[in-house]
Simulated scan of single mutants.
Amino acid sequence: MKCIALYHVRFEDLGAFAQPLATAGYDIGYRHAGAAPLTIEEWRDTDLIVILGGPIGVADVASYPWLAAEIDGIALRLAHRQPTLGICLGAQLMAVALGGQVLASGAMEIGWSPLAIAPGAGSLEHLRGVPVLHWHGDNIVPGAALLAEAHTGPTPCQAFRIGTHALGLQCHVEFDPAMLEEWLTGHAVELRQAGTDLAQLRADTRQHGPRLVQAGQAVLQDWLRELAP
């Protein structure tokens, strides 16, 4: 089985999700969404596509025109009910492809805190009571066709599902704590502007990171089992 991991900045990769994907039998290939865009056939026929995070947003289409084609590809894929996982920016692009909205929240949510999980949230139950990493400034606006499965105080939609074939995660459930320093340097300007306490972020990552890896991998494993015919 083929999995394409569509990235926007190289250090925001599959992280802790890579191992369970490989164990489930997926051959993983990375592509940059703008530099190596997917063909219509790849959007439609690839066994699994994971759309990863990044520092740009759905409002940046004028600056990054290839985002429009990415949204169109996601819409095509979801219309064919093909397995799709979106993380942070990826989840936001999925929401827009489904006719939803993504709006600037007015403040960055960066750091560790647990989610409020909705009843019957399936594989997301593994995250109940587990602090996860948040790193975003835009919010998905849930609607009738896009129900929030999890939220935090500042963020009304931290996760959503579409049937069993699509899952969107606004928070970074895939995060590998070993990658923290790459994230800190890659997002240095954003962190400075947000006034983020890097010492606290490092300490919280040491405390919560290993538990998130276990819970996040369990979420993905259960979701992949739901995909199995």
Rank of each mutant, 00 (worst) to 15 (best):
A35V: 02
M179L: 14
C157P: 06
A104I: 08
I162S: 03
A5Y: 14
V130I: 15
V50Y: 00
G195P: 13
L133T: 08
P20R: 03
M108N: 14
E181A: 10
L224E: 02
V189T: 13
N139R: 14
H136P: 07
F11I: 12
L76V: 09
G29A: 07
A150M: 10
G25S: 05
A199K: 12
L6K: 03
G106D: 13
W112M: 09
D222I: 06
R211W: 04
A5W: 12
P20M: 09
L147W: 01
A159M: 08
G57Q: 07
D176I: 11
E70K: 03
I140C: 03
D60P: 00
L180F: 08
H80Q: 13
Y26I: 05
H165A: 13
G122R: 05
V213T: 02
A188H: 09
Q82F: 04
S123G: 05
T185A: 08
H208M: 08
M179D: 10
L227K: 03
H80N: 13
V189A: 13
Q217D: 08
A69E: 15
G209E: 10
E181P: 02
T84R: 00
G25N: 04
A107L: 12
R44C: 11
R161W: 02
Y7W: 15
G129V: 06
H134P: 00
G90D: 08
E12R: 09
I162M: 06
A16M: 02
A68D: 06
V9E: 03
D13L: 12
P177A: 09
G25L: 04
V173H: 01
L169M: 15
P229A: 07
L6F: 06
V9Y: 04
G57S: 15
E181H: 13
V102I: 10
R202S: 12
D204I: 08
V141L: 07
A95V: 10
H136V: 11
I71N: 10
L78I: 12
P114Q: 12
F175A: 07
L127C: 02
